[in-house]
Amino acid sequence: MELKKNLAISDTGFVFDANSGESYSLNPIGLEILNYLKQGLKDDEIREKIMEKYDVDASTFDLVYFDFIRTLQQFDLFEKS
């Protein structure tokens, strides 16, 4: 899955979807993950990067990560494949 191209992500965690006109706010880890997604990283790579930096095990991460992805889908932030 690929993030929408015209998504403007600012360092403060503010996201503007130029396509829908909606704006969003992210917490710091949410911002980090969204940036990885924008760079095109795969789920496994993102997990690895987050686990390297933060104190979290793989199953906990997966649980919240896929919930986060589902929320992004709900907000329609991925390109339609």
């Binding site: 503010f14 996201v15 909606e22 704006s23 969003y24 706010s25 992210l26 917490n27 710091p28 880890i29 949410g30 980090e32 993950i33 969204l34 987050i50 930096k53 933060y54 104190d55 979290v56 906990t60 991460f61 919240v64 990560y65 919930d67 986060f68 929320t71 992004l72 907000f75």
Partner: peptide
């Protein structure tokens, strides 16, 4: 020392 993990969150700004 790893940083404490917090759940990623995104919220729509109404």
């Amino acid at each position: 020392m790893k940083l404490p993990f917090e759940r990623p969150l995104i919220k729509k700004i109404n």
